[in-house]
Design a protein around this nucleic acid. Structure first.
Lengths: 361, 361
DNA sequence: TTGTAGGCGTTATCAA
DNA sequence: TTGATAACGCCTACAA
């Protein structure tokens, strides 16, 4: 791509380009919107003139004329959550590739804000991408009725939704802990309105019950490092030897909190997280449920683009599988280890992080 | 909020309302945009007619006519970078509070993409917020001439810019290492086009020279955990005992890479990072330059909103100070420690993370 | 206080 | 394959 010219001032309009290329405005319009209707040379000439002037079609004017804004809205509960960040990145990339610009709304985990953002954006947008919405179902339906909408991690019947299916991997996680010899475990929950949390919580409960494990559930105000850290003491008081956290950030927080009480992972306590973004960056590396968050964002935008193009309202329910990746934060509980007489210590260059091994799903 | 009428079909326009209320279109327009110019009764009558019809002013048309879109554009090199994420969060919150919606562009560290995004967004936006732009200066000037623009971490004369002043803290970091006894240190650089990198690099160079330290500079393709990790080997080969990294993510990567070579932080190697977002979540906690990224985003939007309102082009150059926060990733070099006969080991509940102590700036 | 008319930058319709 | 010309829905001088 050549550098556009630097002559500033008002942005060049279609008329200027038309004059420069000595064609009509209609021809310029077609050179960008329907080049197949024009001769090869004309298209080239017009495009050349356009780059020479630094012309870019005005989306607003185009929208007024066509009704298509070329924009989509992405609303997430928390931009700074690595899972959402990766998702946004994928979504934004695909949107751009498809010629769409993206509005971003951070709802700060607040349902009312979500509602407000969507209402305000509706007029400027052709479609909604709602990530883990915290709104009540009827509010979601309300907005979805207005614009093509794709939900991520929210399972509302008759709406198009993409579900990162972490349940089975959490079940696998519980099994993994059981196999290591843990008998008392905990689940450190995420936001109450979160579908993901409901799914994970249910999977953990069911599996723990099936395997006859004692299960403690801790709830937190908001998934964060600090929230996790605050859980360390309660976890120790409850005498559990392992925990599955709602996400990696919380797991990391728990690890830090445990360190404050001189408990180390995985020797004194085993931890399982979720997301896989920061799981490999911690020491020890976290055993974690790997979600392809970037891919989820891309996929969601692809679907949304289809919906906006065809104006079809076919409802999909798409599930994205996950895997439990065992790394270095899970091991045998102390008691059990003592009983067997071997305190396995993972050390050395490779063992410290453990080459990831795929399990389940 | 009452439910609007559900009569479907084309949305009612200003003309229909005018007919319904038996006034001119201009009057309807004013009833919404400048009610103070109308008599009380007229306004009420028009509004009544509007609600009866379910009329809502068309933002797109309004924008085309006035140039006021109520939108701003935020462009960052990488959404997933925690520093930028926190900044975006602050920015988005303030924008919403001021009644603006926000476009998000991820340039993927590529100058051309940045250029393209801005060109495409220009017409739909009242102002630009460019975070750590990688574009050439003349391109930045070009866009800034078209719309009110606030730059973050890009120091271009005559433009309004917000600079997170990390230089002094990096200088302080070098001093800190020197005080601990390090004689051979490294700076692991960030993106070449980055102003922040230039500033940090210069500060490190000058200070190392002043203190008579040997300095090695490593450059990386892109700041990331993996890039940092790949630096571990070169660092060890260069025989340095400490490094300042471009950001926390890289520092964390270096720590992980060192672990692969059975080197531990801070006993075998000291590390200093930057940003402070993830610095407290690592083990050991990183000595790091604390930047109030969220505040920077908020501040930038506040300024931008002012510029858009007043249409003034007063050029500010605002500097945001930073602090070096000493945590647990810096200590005496082995040799020095051996010489003094004390290998200080930070342990125990508190010592492991070290209560942060403020230094410098 | 209200109405008239022209324009914002594109696309779409209809001819040529 | 290209060119006139009329929308698209609203705002805003200017006039009344």
């Amino acid at each position: 791509m050549e550098l556009p010219p630097n002559r500033s001032g008002p942005a060049p309009t279609i008329s200027r380009v038309a004059a420069e290329a000595m064609v009509s405005r209609a021809t310029v319009s077609r050179a960008f919107g329907a080049p197949h209707l024009l001769s090869r040379e004309t298209v080239e000439a017009v495009r050349a003139a356009a780059t020479r002037l630094g012309y870019v079609p005005n989306q607003t004017a185009r929208a007024l004329s066509t009704g298509r804004t070329g924009n989509i809205a992405l609303v997430v509960p928390d931009i700074t959550n690595p899972f959402f960040a990766a998702l946004m990145r994928g979504a934004q990339a695909r949107a751009r590739a498809a010629g769409y610009a993206m509005f971003l709304g951070d709802s700060d985990e607040r349902p009312e804000l979500e509602d407000e953002l969507l209402a305000k954006l509706a007029a400027q947008v052709e479609g909604f991408l709602l990530v883990a919405p915290r709104m009540a179902e009827d509010r979601i339906r309300h907005h979805a009725a207005r614009r093509p909408t794709v939900l991520i991690n929210s399972d509302i019947p008759d709406l198009t939704r993409l579900l990162v299916d972490t349940g089975p991997s959490y079940a696998r996680g519980v099994e993994h802990l059981a196999e290591l010899g843990h008998r008392r475990i905990a689940y450190v929950a995420g936001p109450a309105q979160s579908w993901s949390n409901a799914q994970r919580s249910a999977a953990v409960k069911a599996t723990a019950k099936r395997l006859g494990l004692r299960l403690v559930i801790l709830s937190t105000p908001r998934p964060s490092f600090e929230a996790g850290r605050a859980c360390a003491k309660p976890l120790l008081l409850k005498q559990v030897t392992a925990a599955l956290a709602f996400d990696d950030g919380m797991a990391q927080g728990i690890a830090a909190g445990l360190a404050d009480w001189a408990q180390s992972v995985p020797d004194d306590f085993s931890l399982i997280g979720c997301d896989g973004v920061i799981a490999t960056t911690t020491v020890p590396a976290l055993t974690s449920v790997a979600t392809q968050c970037g891919a989820a964002g891309e996929r969601a935008v692809d679907i949304l683009v289809d919906m906006m193009r065809d104006r079809v309202a076919g409802h999909h329910r798409i599930t994205i599988p996950t895997d439990l990746v065992v790394r270095a934060s899970t091991g045998r509980p102390r008691i059990c280890a003592a009983a067997t007489g071997t305190v396995e210590r993972r050390g050395g260059i490779d063992g410290r992080r453990g080459s990831p091994s795929l399990v389940g799903a």
